[in-house]
Design a protein around this nucleic acid. Sequence first.
RNA 1: GCCGGUUUAGCUCAGUGGUAGAGCAGCGGUUUUGUAAACCGCUGGUCAUCGGUUCGAAUCCGAUAACCGGCUCCA
Length: 619
Amino acid sequence: MSHDATPKMTDLERLRHSAAHILATAITKLWPEAQLAAGPPVENGFYYDIDLKHRITPDDFAKIESEMKAVTKANQTFERIVVTRQEAVKMGQAGRLGAQQDRPEPSRYKLDILEGIPDDEQITLYKNGEFIDLCVGPHVMRTGNVGAFKITHVSSSYYKGDEKNPQLQRIYGTAFKNKTEMEAHFTLLEEAKKRDHRKLGKELQLFHIDDEVGQGLILWTPKGAIIRQELQNFISEELRKQGYSQVFTPHIGKLGLYRTSGHFPYYKESQYPPIVERETLDLLAKEGCTCSELTNRLDAGEINGYMLKPMNCPHHIKIFASQPHSYRDLPVRLAEFGTVYRWEQSGELGGMTRVRGFTQDDAHLFVTEDQVPAEVKGCLSLVKLIFSKLNMTDYRVRVGLRDPDSNKYTGDPANWDKAEQACREAAASLGVPFSEEAGEAAFYGPKIDFVVKDVIGREWQLGTVQVDYNLPIRFDLNYVGSDGKQHRPVMIHRAPFGSMERFIGCLIEHFAGAFPTWLSPEQVRFLPVTEAQNEYARKLHEQCLAHNIRSVLDDSREKLGAKIRLAQLEKVPYMLIIGEKELNSDHVSVRSRKLNDEGPKPWAEFFTRLQGEISNRLA
RNA sequence: GCCGGUUUAGCUCAGUGGUAGAGCAGCGGUUUUGUAAACCGCUGGUCAUCGGUUCGAAUCCGAUAACCGGCUCCA
């Protein structure tokens, strides 16, 4: 029995998938020897993976596009052809799949894809002009239905996403019903790029990355540091309310600690190599250890040293384990803004969202088995509270479960089942949509992640809550139960922001650099109209400083328009203009970043409003 | 790490083999100014780094680094 497996697609996806075929048609006209792999629609367009000796560069785009233009102009029909497996294989061997005609080389990727199609599924080809491709569809009726398209960029990819497979060229494009819609899309992209945290971070002097310090290592400049500090204050207040205890731990720990936790050697690839003591090195030198031996022995973990900590849990566990616990003590909640270091691949680093050193707003909860559901819920509602305080509503919740086909997970399957169920129920209790995704769990337990998109549509995991039955076993953690016997606690790892770096990177884009007053590096700026008002403005400015309001006095000799422009560009929430009239009436003219000219207000009234806005952390 | 692109003043960017440019910022002066840019002048560069081709290189070639877009990875 065979059944039609045509996937569901939106109209736009269908159009873009067809555009991918038009691209493939153009490519095979220009380079008949090209071997095609796959060409699906994606979020903002489509791509086609091809294997081709000629390196496609942006210089080729115009040529490809004009060839595509010819295809849409010819208004060819997309013809769906059902074939038997034998017929398809025969065509593949003749090089006819993903091609304009028979070729000396077989269509090797198409043949491979064919093998992956289940026996009971229909095999379909799509034909436009002379171009035939193995494809489930669906497509638009005619090539002319693709009204506007553009090749946007080219990059590399691995066949089926596996590093061991051949490297292909991935040609990206976008397509729309018509030109107007495509133009609107590009305008939107331009606008989004203005909010890029890397651009704004530089313009607003929020952070700096310096080659001489190192890739992926963030230097927080004074203005960025204020935002980070304010967020830390905010979260610390919430933690105190919710019964957390603050701890501090060092940035390094002995290699053996990570052997116990299982992070070494499991994650050694993504860690900085150990810091080895001078005496150890001297000893190795006396033994005649060569550099390559040293590397091997470091890799094998035979040489002891100190690791820059890749996570905070082992340190926190040692605090928990430093004294005996009764069930009456639990939950124990240990919180720290802990800085960790991870050796990320150089090609993956970028801005503040993917870095090599970052500070997690971390905490570890040591709880009894019974407390797991309630504590997970508590953690989730904290994350939700923090997100809503910052008006970040555009996130999705992902419940990461184990991949049934993988054996990378540690621990008892029965515990996994319980933990996964607890995560599911907790996520459901949030009252926001969530998706369950197999294979997204941590190796030690399932987790619930809060995921947001950046300005160019990439997803980043921010807040996370993870249930862990594994580390308590590895570290032999215990508490005394009401029965007087030793019991194993369960650990919950959680970080509402994820990391300060990534979170603030996303926050910069979320607010487009215009932070709410409580977070703004500069909250209010006084703009005297002439020098005659400088003294009065200074008095008010100093009153603000005395009340912990971040105020600046612009007593430069610029004209008011110039002062306003500067303050506006620097995204200061409140500009207070003081001229002759204001000076004589104890008023300030308020110009807010949001509403522009709000007119004159009595100083005392505005000051109260400002204080309220800050202390209530209004967004 | 892999593929492709990029790198010129603090910032944004011109400059396709013949003596390094503009605007903004900075500094000095003049202007006392009412809701997004007053005027004049000055300073500022080993053209990412290293090597090569050439009579001559920002420009052509090679290596390295960083950045950008993907891929892979992501505790």
